[in-house]
Amino acid sequence: MSQSAVPSFPRHLLDFSDWNRGQVESILETAQMMQEVLARPVKKVPALTGFTVATVFFEPSTRTRLSFELAARRMSADVLSFATATSSTTKGETYRDTLRTLEQMGIDAYVIRVDAAGVCHQAYGWLHKPVINAGDGWRAHPTQALLDAFTLRERLGSLEGKKIAIVGDILHSRVARSNAELLTMLGAQVVACGPATLLPGSLPGATLTTSLKEALLEADAVMALRLQKERMDKGLLPSLPEYIAAYQITQERLAWARPLAPLLHPGPMNRDVELEGTLADSPQSLVERQVANGQAIRMAVLYHLLVGKRS
């Protein structure tokens, strides 16, 4: 794909494999402008007037869905909200059938969250309209990675050569996969760390380690991931105290990283599991900033996919 001053964009954000650095930089720049919109007393622009965005959440997630919906509304788009709790998928309707039904309602872009990797790719094939992956199984969560990159750049400036540690259940984490993809594209060096049973055999772009000290040592930023409690049931982890003993980010362990290294967490957080209680509220924590930036990033993504130049 060629890079030019005003890059064109793929018609989907499924993961970053069809995206290049120029396109990503453009999204981050646009998000900066959206940030300015959000700082105004009237937080609304007419950019997407007349467009309809559907948020289709086959897997429950209030935070991400609200973030996307608010982003769309701030751009004056109409929003159609579909969530499994109120849907027919529990009655045996397939993802394809549900999406094809929505298609008949004149949707211009789909934001999809689903438990199985690849459904967003399939959906793009069925719908021929912009599809934004809001998290598919263990695979990808690209807007989370974009907002993480945006948040990190606010604090660190360029990510070129910066060491970013990602700590937790890497194997089952779409956040880890998308961040490894994106942060390395932006020049960072990603070290993924977790218990041996929760690490994949490989993760493109990232170095893998079971040693928290090795991961945190001289790190420019630290990202902790949510630990799903069901991992214990499947024999992947002995116990929560065992995890905390080895992998909880504490004030003391954070000292291995560079001074004032920012701390991120995609949420929702298990307090006193991934992070020591007070850390999430410390000045080093960017957790709240991540949420605020999420909206600007999602506005930028919607804008570029719906009215941006096509590739």
Partner: peptide, 12 residues
């Protein structure tokens, strides 16, 4: 198949 491809795709 478990391997480089499944790890990258995030599939069991």
């Amino acid at each position: 198949n478990e391997g480089e491809v499944s790890f990258r795709l995030g599939l069991p």
